[in-house]
């Protein structure tokens, strides 16, 4: 199976502080990969590098086989992103938010409108298309952001702790939705510090203090115990 994301020996530092150190892993096509790490592990820095908000100091990133450093525009065109911070324009309607995003990818006219409707349908929020983003609940806004990230039909979907601040029902619903997207063939990298969002069949990369501690299927990392216990053990939190 081909890799939709390949990261090799990635390094980044803020001044003297090392944020990422020799990070390497890959995500195969159609897989749901959880990037699991406690706060401050380097997840957001990694996402900033994957979306080219930062440029890595060392290492290489390939998105759908395209080197991000050599062909950033082609690589970004194949990437869908849901950031941790809300990024909807609250004064615009849901549809206009998505059309704006589609236009940033060069899409317009009927093709763009059809894709927007399809994405909203997929996330079950098409009935709110005419509402202002401000009038949606937190969970609905997140769904809209995920729908927006799918408008340009990316090969790889990145989500940076997308359930932060949501209630339990919304969290479950969004986690299920994105797992369904992966089951449908989309490759997903889902950053989280919450173990209960990960299923046994998911791939997991455990990131801690800028280093990869483990990268395998969740069930394999958990072994005879639970993923939570193993995660705490690996990150040293379990002994505290």
């Amino acid at each position: 199976m081909t890799n939709r994301l390949s990261i090799s020996d990635l390094g980044y530092r803020y001044g003297d502080r090392v944020a990422l150190d020799g990070v390497s892993f890959s995500v195969a096509e159609g897989r749901f990969c959880a990037l699991l790490g406690p706060n401050g592990a380097g997840k957001s820095t990694l996402f900033a590098l994957l979306t080219r908000l930062f440029v890595p100091h060392s290492g290489r990133i390939e998105i759908a086989g395209i080197d991000l450093a050599r062909a950033p525009r082609a690589a970004l065109a194949r990437l869908g992103v849901v950031f941790q911070q809300p990024t909807l324009d609250l004064d615009l309607t849901v549809r206009r938010n998505l059309l704006y995003f589609a236009a940033l990818h060069g899409l317009s006219g009927r093709a763009s409108a059809l894709r927007v409707d399809a994405a909203l349908d997929l996330l079950g929020v098409r009935d709110r298309a005419g509402d202002r983003a401000r009038d949606l609940s937190g969970g609905q806004r997140r769904r809209v952001e995920i729908a927006r990230a799918l408008v340009h039909e990316p090969r790889l979907l990145l989500l940076d702790e997308p359930t932060v601040g949501l209630d339990a029902a919304s969290r479950r619903s969004i986690t299920d939705h994105v797992h369904d997207l992966a089951a449908g063939g989309l490759t997903v990298l889902w950053a989280t510090h919450l173990v209960d969002e990960i299923r046994p069949g998911d791939d997991v990369v455990i990131l801690h203090r800028g280093r990869v501690l483990a990268a395998a299927q969740a069930a394999a990392i958990a072994g005879a115990g639970t993923l939570l216990a193993r995660f705490l053990e690996l990150t040293g939190e379990g002994t505290a």
Partner: peptide, 11 residues
Amino acid sequence: MGSMRILLTSP
């Protein structure tokens, strides 16, 4: 607020 990210991650 984060909306700049959407702009800057455009291809």
